[in-house]
């Protein structure tokens, strides 16, 4: 797989680190109590086939976090942008 970093250009997979699904929304309530929304955000995933936005870190490059839209069934990269 190759990802086109907006800063660095087209680079090999080995430069990047995947961390998580970017389709989820982090609760904005400040976290005073462990609500079900927090537990869902931390632990639950849709994990379905097809296109999905996800967070990748250009760990061996410019250290930018990227939102990569990728088809998890084919590994095709559909778009790459900064958060």
């Amino acid at each position: 797989m190759r990802i086109t970093c907006p800063h660095c250009g087209n680079r090999g997979l080995e430069e990047f680190t995947y961390t998580q699904d970017a389709e989820r929304t982090r609760p904005t309530d400040g976290g005073a109590t462990p609500t079900p929304e927090w537990a869902d955000y931390i632990y639950l995933r849709d994990n379905l086939k097809g296109p999905r936005k996800e967070y990748w870190y250009h760990s061996a490059g410019c250290h930018a976090w990227l939102i990569v839209e990728r088809d998890v069934s084919t590994h095709e990269i559909l778009s790459v942008r900064l958060p």
């Binding site: 609760p27 400040g30 976290g31 005073a32 109590t33 462990p34 609500t35 927090w38 537990a39 931390i42």
Partner: peptide, 11 residues
């Protein structure tokens, strides 16, 4: 204050 991990640490 708000901080990373606050909500889940309160379990």
């Amino acid at each position: 204050k708000e901080f990373i991990g606050r909500a889940m640490a309160a379990r």
